[in-house]
Design a protein around this nucleic acid. Sequence first.
DNA 1: AAAGAAAACTTAGAACCCTAAACATTCTCA
DNA 2: TGAGAATGTTTAGGGTTCTAAGTTTTCTTT
Lengths: 167, 167
Amino acid sequence: MKKPERVTETILNHWREAVPNDRLAHLVKDATRGLTRALQSRLATEGVSFGHWVFLRILWEKDGLTQRELSLEAGLMEPTTFSALVAMEKLGYVTRRKLPHSRKNVYVFLTEQGRALKAKLVPMAEEVNRIAIAGLPASEIATTRRVLLTMIEHLARDEAAQDQGGN
Amino acid sequence: MKKPERVTETILNHWREAVPNDRLAHLVKDATRGLTRALQSRLATEGVSFGHWVFLRILWEKDGLTQRELSLEAGLMEPTTFSALVAMEKLGYVTRRKLPHSRKNVYVFLTEQGRALKAKLVPMAEEVNRIAIAGLPASEIATTRRVLLTMIEHLARDEAAQDQGGN
DNA sequence: AAAGAAAACTTAGAACCCTAAACATTCTCA
DNA sequence: TGAGAATGTTTAGGGTTCTAAGTTTTCTTT
């Protein structure tokens, strides 16, 4: 048997202590882990992996995208996208087709099976979100959203600057 | 040559659009990725991997911990900790020793080399933090910290509940 | 004191994401 | 129009983390 309560307490006490300024990164990372784990365990009940969820969500909005476009939307590198989509094709969620006007691009379309997953999976993500932010004022969520977006922006600019100047 | 600016713009535009409520998770995850990448590229200049940084930081505060204790502090599973520490021992950053009073526990101590990394690495983490939160009011950072902590708490409780009730 | 539970470590195997580089196709422009 | 740049996909390989299960040691309880 596990003793999840004790573990939970240890993790939380860890965070309630004096938290030096440079540990915001650690906090963001832990939140990601919590969110990922919560969704992952729910998706698993339908046999869907977290990595595939990312692409399904994009494709439900709009399919027929190229792998490059999917990479940008998902914020992942091409090889990551490539291997996920090959696996998803094998599972019957998507098809990967070259269209007549280009022999270079690979266009990705949902199958019926892939499209049908939406009805089961989306409520799972909504539940996780609901649990995570329960009781928090909308204004604080909005602030958090803005802060995170600003951080992402700053870090993306830093990365771009390093790619340029740092050679 | 890359074109990092265009990629950056695509990522940021993506986020500035109408963001449905359930995408807070996505935002948190992107922030983690940005923070991780920024620190990772800096650590790489000293030949240190991100996974090792996590444990070095804990050990600089207090060494002589067991692997189990390190797992809890780092918020990682035991096998993750185990393989990181074996690698770190091979690199000469730490030693793993059994002490006379227990043949079960493995205690981890920094070597001189491991301890010496602190002076070079900590400023890198501080720089990343500074870049990320530049210009943001302290009050908004504090709110973000509180919101993230609450989310972690909710998700940890949910996970514990599932372990218990869910068989 | 011995059986069984618990704790700590280790092994095995998989998922996910990355960088670097090769390859194929398309575009640009001199 | 043809050389080189740019774009998009694919291959190869590595890092980080996880779950599941095995081993060893220690603790608990009768």
